[in-house]
Amino acid sequence: MNTERTILIIDDDIDLVEIIRMTLENEGYRVIDAQSGERGLQTAREKKPDLILLDVMMGAVDEGFQVAYELRGDAVTKDIPILMLTAVTEQTGFGFDPDKDQDFLPVDEFLEKPVSPRKLVDLVRKHLPTTA
């Protein structure tokens, strides 16, 4: 039933990409990936995925945030839901609080690593638009 739905993973951890791919494909989603912010933006514009999983910290500490802002600023991609994968809240003292900072963070939800497959699937279902 999900065959038409495409999910883009933007993450430079190739292992995590494959794990998420396996999980989501098992649920019937189509999964494409990009291993850098730049390529992620390009892929998002070209393929117009139904949902984007975005890693917060790739090359630079805030690369994920930059990508999210650009996605939101682009007419083609601005409505695509974004789930942000993060290890930051607990780890580096980067100091953002999803509950509090939601207003100025252009993402729909944070997902703490390690990613639990069940939670991931639930959140993907929750944020996917009901009609393709």
Binding site: D13, I19, M22, Q91, P114, V115
Partner: peptide, 22 residues
């Protein structure tokens, strides 16, 4: 150590969970 280890351990954890789930 925290910074360098968290990512691989978390990925391994996700892999195990995904294997169990799938």
């Amino acid at each position: 150590v925290t910074h360098e280890i968290k990512s691989p351990v978390a990925t391994a954890q996700s892999a195990v969970d995904a294997a169990l789930e799938v």
